[in-house]
Simulated scan of single mutants.
Amino acid sequence: MSETSPDGPTVLVVDDEPDVAELYAYRLRKEYAVRQANSGEAALDAFDETIDVVLLDRRMPGMTGDEVLDEIRNTDHDTRVVMVTAVDPDVEIVDMPFDDYLCKPIGRDALINSVEQQLTAQEYSETMQDLIRATSKKGVLEAELPADELADSTEYQTLEARIDELRAHNSELLDELDDYEAAFNAVEHSAPELGSGGTSREASF
């Protein structure tokens, strides 16, 4: 595990590819304290109550990102977890307790914006945080799966119903916010297609 410690929130970057973890850390460390881990086991060793946001790879040898996520949620720490992964999402993500899901490769701006959004979300009520999580999952699924598949999905229909319920519960706060969905969906949830202006994860800093 490696660590940088400027003032400000702390981000734990977890990826089994050291060069990828270092790239993400490089992009973040000017603004945040950054810890790095290259396995699920090392991630749990590095994790404590001082971590504000975890950027977590799903596909890792040994302990997977999904298992790390479950272990983090078994603690009483109020930590935001963003899955940053090459694993294409399916409707199974509806029941996963992450806060956002980004598909590799991730550009610099998308990475920084995601961390900033999660830190902002920490300031909201729990039901508002639930709404943001659910809206994020809906956006990811709509970006990655065909509409006819979603229309036939019980999980997706349940997610939509949950979003409607949470919107009703948070109606007063939503009236005060300026288009919260646009703000929290501004992050690129899916990898840009080659030839469409997208960049690889080795893109410039």
Score class of each variant (00 low, 15 high):
1 M>E: 12
6 P>M: 09
6 P>Y: 08
7 D>I: 02
9 P>A: 08
10 T>G: 00
12 L>K: 03
22 E>A: 14
24 Y>E: 08
25 A>R: 12
26 Y>H: 11
26 Y>I: 08
27 R>L: 12
30 K>L: 08
30 K>S: 15
33 A>F: 00
38 N>M: 11
41 E>Q: 15
41 E>R: 13
41 E>F: 01
44 L>I: 13
49 E>Y: 10
50 T>I: 07
52 D>P: 00
54 V>R: 00
59 R>Y: 01
60 M>G: 05
60 M>V: 03
62 G>F: 05
63 M>A: 02
67 E>T: 08
69 L>V: 07
69 L>Y: 04
70 D>H: 06
71 E>S: 15
72 I>M: 02
72 I>G: 02
72 I>Q: 02
74 N>I: 01
74 N>Y: 05
75 T>Q: 10
75 T>Y: 11
77 H>E: 12
78 D>C: 03
81 V>Q: 02
82 V>G: 03
83 M>C: 11
83 M>H: 08
91 V>W: 03
92 E>G: 14
94 V>G: 00
95 D>C: 03
96 M>W: 14
97 P>V: 09
100 D>M: 13
104 K>M: 07
104 K>P: 02
105 P>K: 08
106 I>H: 01
107 G>D: 13
107 G>V: 03
108 R>T: 15
108 R>G: 06
111 L>F: 07
112 I>V: 15
114 S>E: 06
118 Q>N: 13
119 L>Y: 01
120 T>I: 11
120 T>C: 02
123 E>R: 13
124 Y>D: 09
124 Y>C: 04
125 S>E: 10
126 E>M: 10
127 T>P: 03
131 L>P: 05
131 L>G: 02
134 A>P: 03
136 S>K: 12
137 K>H: 08
139 G>I: 06
140 V>Y: 03
140 V>G: 03
140 V>N: 03
141 L>A: 09
146 P>H: 10
149 E>W: 00
154 T>S: 14
154 T>P: 10
155 E>C: 04
157 Q>G: 13
158 T>I: 12
161 A>D: 15
162 R>H: 13
166 L>D: 12
168 A>S: 13
170 N>R: 06
173 L>W: 04
175 D>Y: 00
176 E>C: 00
178 D>K: 06
180 Y>F: 15
181 E>P: 02
184 F>K: 04
189 H>Y: 06
192 P>R: 09
192 P>V: 04
194 L>A: 15
195 G>H: 10
198 G>S: 07
198 G>W: 03
199 T>F: 12
199 T>W: 08
199 T>H: 13
204 S>A: 15
205 F>A: 15
205 F>W: 07
